[in-house]
């Protein structure tokens, strides 16, 4: 078992089209670090600066926004699912 990361379509050009990738656990920051190491170019899309996500990037662990958890330090364990979702308009 490992941690799944769901890749939104605007980022799939960096993952050879893959919509889900699997990584080892740790913190959300660790997992996104593994993602950026594997998918060259994706770092600039996700991070404004090291440790600071871009304004319009939302990251969820099992349906909960990490800003309600422990941000990038949120612990993830095998079986958890991380989603990266761009912000969208109201309704």
């Amino acid at each position: 078992m490992s941690v799944k990361v769901r890749i939104p379509s605007p980022l799939r050009s960096f993952t050879d089209g893959a919509d889900v990738l699997q990584f080892e656990g740790g913190s959300v920051g660790d997992v996104l670090g593994q993602l950026t190491a594997r998918a060259g170019g994706i770092e600039k899309r996700l991070f404004k600066s090291p440790g600071e996500l871009n304004r319009f990037v939302n990251v969820y662990v099992n349906d909960e926004d990490i800003r309600f958890l422990d941000n990038l330090a949120t612990h993830v364990k095998p079986g958890d699912e991380i989603s990266i979702v761009p912000a969208i308009a109201g309704g």
């Binding site: 605007p10 050009s13 600039k44 899309r45 996700l46 871009n54 304004r55 319009f56 990037v57 761009p86 912000a87 969208i88 308009a89």
Partner: peptide
């Protein structure tokens, strides 16, 4: 609106470079 990247008018809502609208 964030990084200024231009695109033709199509059904896309976030910038492929920075996720900005």
């Amino acid at each position: 609106r964030e990084c200024g990247r231009r695109s033709e008018a199509r059904a896309v809502h976030v910038c492929e470079d920075c996720f900005g609208p």
